Simulated scan of single mutants.
Amino acid sequence: MRRRRFLELAGGGLAGTALTATVAPPAPAAAGRGRFPAAAGRGRSRAAPPFAVVAADGTGDFATVQAAVDAVPAGNAAPLTIAVRPGTYLGQVVVPSSKPLITLTGLGATPDAVVIADDRANGTLKADGTPWGTTGSASVTVDGAGFRARNLTFANLFDEAAHPEITSRQAVAVLTRADRVEFDRVKFLGNQDTLYTNSSAAGVVARAYFRECYVEGDVDFIFGRATAVFDRCRIHSLDRHSTPNGYVTAPSTDVANPHGLLFHRCMLTSDAPAGTVFLGRPWHPGNDPDAIGRTVIRDSWIGAHVGATAWSDFGTWPWREARLAEYHNRGPGAIPSPERPQLTDAQAAANTMAAVLRGADGWRPQSCK
Rank of each mutant, 00 (worst) to 15 (best):
G12R: 12
A21P: 09
V23P: 02
R33V: 13
G34C: 02
P37G: 07
A39I: 13
A40G: 08
G41F: 10
G43H: 13
A52R: 13
G60C: 10
T64S: 13
D70K: 14
G75T: 05
N76K: 12
G87C: 07
P96V: 05
S98H: 03
T105F: 11
G106P: 02
L107G: 08
I116Q: 02
L125Y: 09
T130P: 01
A155P: 00
N156L: 03
A162N: 09
P164M: 06
E165F: 08
R169W: 01
R177T: 12
R177M: 12
A178V: 04
V186H: 04
V186D: 01
Q192M: 09
T194E: 00
T197C: 13
N198V: 06
S200I: 04
G203N: 09
Y209N: 02
Y214F: 15
E216L: 11
E216Y: 00
I222D: 06
I222S: 02
G224V: 05
S237L: 11
L238W: 12
D239C: 12
H241R: 10
P244Y: 04
Y247C: 05
A250Y: 01
D254L: 08
P258Y: 11
L262D: 06
C266Y: 09
A272D: 04
G280K: 05
R281F: 08
A291W: 01
R294T: 15
T295F: 00
V296D: 01
I297C: 04
R298G: 06
A308D: 15
T309L: 10
F314E: 04
A325D: 03
G333W: 01
G333Y: 01
E339N: 15
A346D: 14
A348F: 02
M353V: 09
L357D: 03
W363A: 11
Q366G: 11
C368I: 14
